[in-house]
């Protein structure tokens, strides 16, 4: 029997046993994947923000490209992330 088949049938035994009992369900719950980050995020499909809707009555023309911008954020602190190619 090839390795993957052997692995699958072995895993099947374990899964089938888990599905059988309440104890199995608990064991299953305990086996959940470990998360490294969880976050609740708000939607933003509204006009409640400070600048949009009626608050944003600026007539400044935001369409002009005044100058060529370069990234100036936290990317400067990532080591080994830059390449000189291109």
């Amino acid at each position: 029997m090839k390795k993957s088949t052997r692995l699958v049938t072995a895993a099947a035994g374990s899964l089938l046993a888990l599905g059988l009992s309440a104890a199995g369900n608990q064991a299953l719950a305990a086996k959940k994947m470990e998360k490294c980050f969880g976050i609740v995020k708000a939607g933003h499909n509204d006009c409640q923000t400070a600048t949009s809707s009626c608050a944003g009555t600026s007539t400044v023309d935001g369409q002009k490209d005044a100058f060529v911008l370069v990234p100036t954020g936290t990317c400067e602190r990532l080591v080994g992330g830059s390449t000189t190619k291109g």
Binding site: G56, S58, T72, T74
Partner: peptide, 29 residues
């Protein structure tokens, strides 16, 4: 005014989805 509001809303929506990108390149960029 209407056009600016549309642009601001879209910009804020994008910043809402991509906050890490915004931090990486800075607000102006």
């Amino acid at each position: 005014i209407h056009r600016n509001n549309v642009a601001i809303t879209l910009g804020e929506a994008l910043a809402g989805v991509y906050p890490v990108v915004q931090q990486l390149v800075g607000s102006a960029f």
